[in-house]
Write a protein that binds this DNA or RNA. Sequence first.
DNA 1: GCGACAG
DNA 2: ATCTTGTCGC
Length: 231
Amino acid sequence: MDIAALRAEQLATAGKIIRHDDFAFTQPALIAGADVGFEQGGEVTRAAIALLRFPSLELLEYQVARVATTMPYIPGFLSFREYPALLAAWDKLGRRPDLLLVDGHGISHPRRLGVASHFGLLVDIPTIGVAKRRLCGQFASLAEEEGALAPLMDKGEQLAWVWRSKPRCNPLFISTGHRVGLKSALHWVQLCMRGYRLPEPTRWADAVASNRTAFQRWQQGRDEADFFPPQ
DNA sequence: GCGACAG
DNA sequence: ATCTTGTCGC
Protein backbone atom coordinates (compact mmCIF):
# COMPACT_ATOMS: atom_id res chain seq x y z
CA MET A 1 0.00 0.00 0.00
CA ASP A 2 1.23 3.44 -0.92
CA ILE A 3 0.29 5.85 1.84
CA ALA A 4 1.50 8.87 -0.11
CA ALA A 5 -0.84 7.93 -2.96
CA LEU A 6 -3.75 7.41 -0.58
CA ARG A 7 -3.06 10.80 0.97
CA ALA A 8 -3.10 12.42 -2.47
CA GLU A 9 -6.34 10.61 -3.25
CA GLN A 10 -7.88 11.92 -0.03
CA LEU A 11 -6.89 15.47 -0.78
CA ALA A 12 -8.41 15.26 -4.27
CA THR A 13 -11.57 13.49 -3.10
CA ALA A 14 -12.19 15.78 -0.14
CA GLY A 15 -12.90 18.62 -2.54
CA LYS A 16 -15.99 16.78 -3.77
CA ILE A 17 -17.63 16.58 -0.36
CA ILE A 18 -20.78 18.68 -0.09
CA ARG A 19 -20.90 20.29 3.35
CA HIS A 20 -24.37 21.79 3.19
CA ASP A 21 -27.84 20.27 3.16
CA ASP A 22 -28.41 18.73 -0.24
CA PHE A 23 -31.46 16.51 0.08
CA ALA A 24 -35.14 16.69 -0.75
CA PHE A 25 -36.65 15.56 2.54
CA THR A 26 -37.93 17.79 5.28
CA GLN A 27 -37.59 14.78 7.49
CA PRO A 28 -36.08 11.43 6.50
CA ALA A 29 -38.46 8.47 6.15
CA LEU A 30 -35.70 5.87 6.37
CA ILE A 31 -32.50 6.31 8.33
CA ALA A 32 -29.64 3.85 8.66
CA GLY A 33 -26.61 3.18 10.80
CA ALA A 34 -23.38 1.52 9.74
CA ASP A 35 -20.80 -0.20 11.90
CA VAL A 36 -17.70 -2.23 11.13
CA GLY A 37 -16.00 -4.93 13.14
CA PHE A 38 -13.27 -7.50 12.63
CA GLU A 39 -12.96 -11.26 13.01
CA GLN A 40 -10.16 -13.77 13.16
CA GLY A 41 -7.57 -11.37 14.39
CA GLY A 42 -8.43 -8.79 11.77
CA GLU A 43 -8.31 -11.10 8.75
CA VAL A 44 -12.01 -10.59 8.08
CA THR A 45 -13.82 -7.26 8.00
CA ARG A 46 -17.49 -7.40 8.95
CA ALA A 47 -19.82 -4.52 8.12
CA ALA A 48 -23.40 -4.16 9.30
CA ILE A 49 -26.00 -1.68 8.14
CA ALA A 50 -29.29 -1.33 10.01
CA LEU A 51 -32.26 0.35 8.37
CA LEU A 52 -34.77 2.10 10.64
CA ARG A 53 -38.03 3.92 10.12
CA PHE A 54 -37.90 7.59 11.06
CA PRO A 55 -38.92 9.11 13.40
CA SER A 56 -40.19 5.97 15.17
CA LEU A 57 -36.72 4.39 14.95
CA GLU A 58 -38.01 0.82 14.66
CA LEU A 59 -35.64 -1.61 12.98
CA LEU A 60 -36.88 -2.58 9.51
CA GLU A 61 -34.01 -4.42 7.91
CA TYR A 62 -30.35 -5.20 8.32
CA GLN A 63 -27.55 -6.58 6.20
CA VAL A 64 -24.16 -7.93 7.12
CA ALA A 65 -21.21 -8.45 4.80
CA ARG A 66 -17.90 -10.18 5.46
CA VAL A 67 -14.92 -9.50 3.25
CA ALA A 68 -11.19 -10.18 3.46
CA THR A 69 -9.35 -7.33 5.15
CA THR A 70 -7.05 -5.52 2.73
CA MET A 71 -5.49 -2.82 4.90
CA PRO A 72 -4.21 -2.42 8.44
CA TYR A 73 -5.62 0.28 10.68
CA ILE A 74 -3.74 3.51 10.18
CA PRO A 75 -5.12 6.64 11.85
CA GLY A 76 -6.31 8.96 9.09
CA PHE A 77 -6.79 6.14 6.59
CA LEU A 78 -9.64 4.23 8.17
CA SER A 79 -11.97 4.55 5.18
CA PHE A 80 -9.70 2.54 2.90
CA ARG A 81 -9.81 -0.28 5.44
CA GLU A 82 -13.56 -0.21 5.97
CA TYR A 83 -15.34 0.88 2.83
CA PRO A 84 -15.07 -2.40 0.85
CA ALA A 85 -17.12 -4.20 3.51
CA LEU A 86 -19.49 -1.27 3.85
CA LEU A 87 -20.14 -1.27 0.10
CA ALA A 88 -20.84 -5.02 0.20
CA ALA A 89 -23.42 -4.57 2.95
CA TRP A 90 -24.86 -1.55 1.15
CA ASP A 91 -25.37 -3.56 -2.05
CA LYS A 92 -27.36 -6.16 -0.13
CA LEU A 93 -29.74 -3.59 1.32
CA GLY A 94 -33.21 -3.81 -0.19
CA ARG A 95 -34.09 -0.17 0.34
CA ARG A 96 -31.98 2.96 0.32
CA PRO A 97 -32.05 5.15 3.44
CA ASP A 98 -32.50 8.90 3.10
CA LEU A 99 -29.75 9.44 5.64
CA LEU A 100 -26.90 7.29 6.96
CA LEU A 101 -25.04 7.55 10.27
CA VAL A 102 -21.52 6.15 10.01
CA ASP A 103 -19.35 5.24 12.97
CA GLY A 104 -16.26 7.40 12.70
CA HIS A 105 -15.54 10.94 11.57
CA GLY A 106 -16.80 12.79 8.52
CA ILE A 107 -14.95 16.00 7.67
CA SER A 108 -13.32 16.18 11.12
CA HIS A 109 -10.27 14.52 9.64
CA PRO A 110 -6.73 15.80 8.90
CA ARG A 111 -7.51 15.96 5.18
CA ARG A 112 -11.28 16.37 5.63
CA LEU A 113 -12.17 12.92 4.41
CA GLY A 114 -13.11 10.59 7.24
CA VAL A 115 -14.92 7.33 6.56
CA ALA A 116 -18.38 8.93 6.83
CA SER A 117 -17.50 11.44 4.12
CA HIS A 118 -15.68 8.99 1.89
CA PHE A 119 -18.44 6.39 2.00
CA GLY A 120 -21.15 9.02 1.56
CA LEU A 121 -19.47 10.20 -1.61
CA LEU A 122 -19.02 6.64 -2.92
CA VAL A 123 -22.72 5.83 -2.62
CA ASP A 124 -23.86 9.42 -3.11
CA ILE A 125 -26.11 9.63 -0.06
CA PRO A 126 -26.38 12.12 2.82
CA THR A 127 -24.16 10.87 5.67
CA ILE A 128 -23.24 12.01 9.16
CA GLY A 129 -20.12 11.02 11.06
CA VAL A 130 -20.67 9.91 14.65
CA ALA A 131 -17.33 9.25 16.33
CA LYS A 132 -16.56 8.33 19.92
CA ARG A 133 -13.12 9.88 20.01
CA ARG A 134 -11.29 12.86 18.58
CA LEU A 135 -9.02 12.43 15.59
CA CYS A 136 -7.91 16.01 15.06
CA GLY A 137 -8.82 19.54 16.12
CA GLN A 138 -9.32 21.14 19.52
CA PHE A 139 -12.30 21.85 21.72
CA ALA A 140 -12.96 23.59 25.02
CA SER A 141 -13.55 21.41 28.06
CA LEU A 142 -17.15 20.33 28.12
CA ALA A 143 -19.61 20.84 30.96
CA GLU A 144 -20.69 17.67 32.75
CA GLU A 145 -24.37 18.14 32.02
CA GLU A 146 -26.17 16.16 29.38
CA GLY A 147 -26.48 18.22 26.24
CA ALA A 148 -23.26 20.17 26.75
CA LEU A 149 -22.00 21.32 23.38
CA ALA A 150 -18.76 22.72 21.98
CA PRO A 151 -17.41 23.21 18.49
CA LEU A 152 -14.45 21.13 17.34
CA MET A 153 -12.07 23.60 15.72
CA ASP A 154 -9.10 23.06 13.44
CA LYS A 155 -7.14 25.66 11.51
CA GLY A 156 -9.82 28.26 12.03
CA GLU A 157 -12.80 26.23 10.90
CA GLN A 158 -15.41 24.23 12.73
CA LEU A 159 -15.23 20.58 11.74
CA ALA A 160 -17.69 19.01 14.14
CA TRP A 161 -19.74 19.27 17.28
CA VAL A 162 -18.55 17.81 20.55
CA TRP A 163 -21.76 16.81 22.24
CA ARG A 164 -22.39 15.07 25.55
CA SER A 165 -25.32 12.84 24.63
CA LYS A 166 -25.58 11.31 28.12
CA PRO A 167 -24.43 12.27 31.61
CA ARG A 168 -21.18 10.74 32.88
CA CYS A 169 -20.33 9.60 29.37
CA ASN A 170 -17.64 10.85 27.03
CA PRO A 171 -19.01 13.14 24.35
CA LEU A 172 -19.73 12.24 20.75
CA PHE A 173 -18.08 13.92 17.77
CA ILE A 174 -20.73 14.71 15.18
CA SER A 175 -19.66 15.93 11.79
CA THR A 176 -20.76 16.45 8.22
CA GLY A 177 -20.25 13.31 6.23
CA HIS A 178 -21.61 14.29 2.83
CA ARG A 179 -24.54 16.43 1.69
CA VAL A 180 -25.46 17.39 5.28
CA GLY A 181 -24.56 20.66 7.01
CA LEU A 182 -23.11 20.70 10.52
CA LYS A 183 -26.25 22.16 12.06
CA SER A 184 -28.45 19.52 10.45
CA ALA A 185 -26.04 16.75 11.37
CA LEU A 186 -26.46 17.56 15.04
CA HIS A 187 -30.22 17.97 14.60
CA TRP A 188 -30.80 14.55 13.04
CA VAL A 189 -28.54 12.77 15.50
CA GLN A 190 -30.39 14.37 18.39
CA LEU A 191 -33.67 13.07 16.99
CA CYS A 192 -32.18 9.57 16.95
CA MET A 193 -31.46 9.44 20.68
CA ARG A 194 -33.38 7.11 22.97
CA GLY A 195 -31.60 7.46 26.29
CA TYR A 196 -28.28 5.89 25.40
CA ARG A 197 -24.92 7.37 24.57
CA LEU A 198 -25.18 6.38 20.90
CA PRO A 199 -28.01 7.15 18.45
CA GLU A 200 -30.34 4.27 17.61
CA PRO A 201 -29.19 3.61 14.04
CA THR A 202 -25.64 3.20 15.30
CA ARG A 203 -26.72 1.09 18.24
CA TRP A 204 -28.69 -1.25 15.99
CA ALA A 205 -25.83 -1.57 13.53
CA ASP A 206 -23.57 -2.45 16.45
CA ALA A 207 -26.12 -4.88 17.86
CA VAL A 208 -26.40 -6.62 14.50
CA ALA A 209 -22.67 -6.70 13.87
CA SER A 210 -21.97 -8.09 17.32
CA ASN A 211 -25.07 -10.31 17.47
CA ARG A 212 -26.17 -8.73 20.73
CA THR A 213 -29.16 -9.98 22.67
CA ALA A 214 -31.35 -7.06 21.65
CA PHE A 215 -30.83 -8.02 18.04
CA GLN A 216 -31.37 -11.73 18.75
CA ARG A 217 -34.72 -10.93 20.33
CA TRP A 218 -35.71 -8.81 17.36
CA GLN A 219 -34.73 -11.61 15.00
CA GLN A 220 -36.65 -14.17 17.05
CA GLY A 221 -39.74 -12.00 16.89
CA ARG A 222 -39.39 -11.70 13.14
CA ASP A 223 -39.03 -15.47 12.75
CA GLU A 224 -42.19 -16.06 14.74
CA ALA A 225 -44.00 -13.61 12.49
CA ASP A 226 -42.89 -15.72 9.52
CA PHE A 227 -44.25 -18.93 11.04
CA PHE A 228 -47.44 -17.35 12.28
CA PRO A 229 -48.15 -14.50 9.86
CA PRO A 230 -50.79 -12.04 11.13
CA GLN A 231 -54.11 -12.79 9.42
C1' DG B 1 12.69 14.86 17.69
C1' DC B 2 8.22 14.07 20.36
C1' DG B 3 3.52 13.27 21.10
C1' DA B 4 -1.17 12.27 19.08
C1' DC B 5 -3.63 9.05 16.78
C1' DA B 6 -11.47 7.54 14.17
C1' DG B 7 -11.94 1.99 14.30
C1' DA C 1 -11.21 -2.65 16.64
C1' DT C 2 -10.45 -7.21 19.61
C1' DC C 3 -9.10 -10.26 23.62
C1' DT C 4 -12.17 -10.87 28.27
C1' DT C 5 -14.28 -11.25 34.58
C1' DG C 6 -15.45 -9.10 37.64
C1' DT C 7 -16.85 -5.01 39.54
C1' DC C 8 -18.16 -0.21 40.85
C1' DG C 9 -21.98 2.98 40.53
C1' DC C 10 -26.55 4.84 39.30
